[in-house]
């Protein structure tokens, strides 16, 4: 007999897997690095958090550790995607041709000029 706890946990894990799948799909379908990172970061963070909570619900003694994992993921996953996006821009990966506006490029150039002078 499967308890209600297991069912809730399995539901969390399934939702997490669905989000992970959508993130992977976005990684393939979207046009450039920045858009791909958008999809990947959000879905993969949410999916991993959902899976961790699901595991915590199934085995309640693991719940505090699962919550710690959630906190850590929410702190570090956006950081890593930010680092990847910034590194991509700084090493010259172009924006998609359908992009509307780019205010970062001029600001970066100004900053580099200032750094070069000082």
């Amino acid at each position: 007999m499967i308890g209600i706890q297991t069912i809730i946990g399995m539901a969390f894990i399934s939702i997490g897997l669905l989000f992970q799948f959508l993130g992977a799909l976005g990684l393939v379908r979207l046009p450039d690095v920045y858009n791909r990172l958008q999809a990947a970061t959000k879905s993969i963070t949410m999916g991993a958090i959902s899976i961790a909570i699901g595991v915590g619900v199934i085995d309640l003694s693991l719940l505090p550790k699962a919550l710690l994992v959630v906190i850590f993921l929410m702190l570090t996953n956006p950081l890593s995607s930010h680092a990847i996006a910034r590194a991509a821009y700084n090493s010259g990966v172009p924006l998609w041709k359908g992009s509307v506006v780019d205010r970062y490029g001029p600001a970066l150039k100004k900053l580099q000029k200032r750094r070069g002078r000082s």
């Binding site: 979207l30 858009n35 924006l95 998609w96 509307v100 506006v101």
Partner: peptide, 14 residues
């Protein structure tokens, strides 16, 4: 956005 056939995107850096 991912499942939409034409992918409604209007990206940019602000």
């Amino acid at each position: 956005r991912v499942l939409h056939p034409r992918m409604p995107l209007r990206p940019g850096i602000v």
